[in-house]
């Protein structure tokens, strides 16, 4: 059995038992150090604890191919949407086994829902990890083609999992229509507005759900292309604001000082150490700010905002803000 297969078996066991010992994270770190010449250059130090594993900035996925070596024709590629920058990041893996089993296991644990008919109004591309994830929860009926499409309200007349971004839900509510879903249905809201214009801010968006959708349960999902695991909130009743996100035990979360990069208690820039990223990069530093509570059953994360939009204090702007001359 190869080192990868042996580790993969241990990660699968962690998903099944919902117990992921620290030693498994450290073994995965050493494995990636040895398997990837690129990571070997980034990760030159020993790690004695999970927070010692150097977190790779999420934006580096736009710069480098951080997938398994060598790239193979059957590798799976997920690409970022590109909405937050000009280049699209690429997350490459050999397969989606860990992704799929981890996603379904944590969804069922948090949402307490089995396979369902999925009505998706998420703006996703064919190579989107979000699109891949929602398809794991049931057959998908997609109602987004540049905007929320006309059949969406008709599709919401029967029990379902409504998969939506905050922005798309706002767009849906801007159209004529209503539904009377009951608690068998779930509204899954993922993603923020990321600087895009929206009519409603987050609390108003959630408060509008009973009037427009009835009484489905509502959950928040936090995920990103560069991570193979997701965090979910506990379901709340329609009209309520979902609470903190809970990461699965096989993905540890901690905060770092955004200026120094050092791990801190409580609030800071969020870092995720995801065993399901066994084929790519174990530890990721996001551009999200949050507060983290360490829990054995799953770290709890409260999102506080993003690093983006910081004041530019100079007249030299970065490449994506310059007009490139052909």
């Amino acid at each position: 059995m190869s080192a990868r297969d042996a580790l993969r078996a241990r990660v699968l066991q962690a998903i099944e038992t919902r117990v992921a010992p620290e030693a498994l994270f450290l073994d995965a770190y050493r494995y990636q150090q040895a398997a990837s010449p690129l990571l070997a250059r980034l990760w030159t130090a020993e790690a004695r604890g999970i927070e010692d594993i150097p977190a790779v900035p999420v934006a580096l996925f736009k710069d480098l191919d951080l997938g398994p070596v060598p790239p193979l024709p059957g590798d799976v590629l997920f690409r970022t949407s590109g909405t937050t920058g000009s280049a699209r990041g690429v997350h490459r893996s050999r397969d989606t086994l860990l992704y799929d089993l981890g996603a379904v296991a944590h969804y069922r644990e948090m949402v307490r829902a089995g396979p369902a008919r999925v009505v998706s109004i998420c703006p996703v591309d064919a190579d989107s990890s979000l699109g891949h994830m929602v398809a794991l929860f049931g057959p998908v009926e997609a109602y987004f083609d540049g905007a929320v499409s006309a059949g969406a309200w008709a599709a919401l007349q029967a029990p379902c999992l409504l998969a939506t971004t905050a922005f798309a839900l706002d767009a849906l509510f801007a159209t004529e229509g209503a539904a009377t879903l009951d608690a068998r249905s779930v509204v899954m809201v993922t993603g923020g507005f990321k600087g895009r214009h929206a009519r409603l801010d987050a609390p108003a968006l959630y408060e509008a759900i009973p009037a427009r959708l009835g009484s489905p349960r509502v959950v928040g999902e936090y995920g990103m292309t560069e991570l193979s695991s997701q965090s979910w909130t506990a379901p709340v009743a329609a009209g309520e604001l979902p609470g903190a996100f809970v990461a699965p035990p096989w993905m540890r979360v901690y905060a770092a000082d955004p200026h120094t990069g050092r791990a801190v208690e409580g609030e800071g820039v969020l870092r995720f150490v995801d065993l399901c990223n066994l084929d790519s990069v174990l530890a990721i530093e996001t551009q999200d700010l949050g507060r983290v509570e360490r829990r054995d059953e799953g770290d709890r994360v409260t999102l506080l905002g993003r690093l983006e939009g910081a004041e530019l204090r100079g007249c030299s702007l970065r490449a994506e803000r310059l007009r490139v001359q052909a």
């Binding site: 690129l38 250059r41 980034l42 790779v56 900035p57 934006a59 580096l60 710069d63 480098l64 955004p258 200026h259 120094t260 990069g261 820039v269 530093e285 551009q287 700010l289 690093l307 983006e308 939009g309 910081a310 004041e311 204090r313």
Partner: peptide
């Protein structure tokens, strides 16, 4: 002063430089 966004970008650049 260095903003949090700039500090994050510096870490990105440092990683890129270490890797390449």
């Amino acid at each position: 002063r260095v903003s949090a966004e700039e500090a994050s970008e510096i870490r990105r650049l440092a990683s890129l430089a270490r890797a390449t």
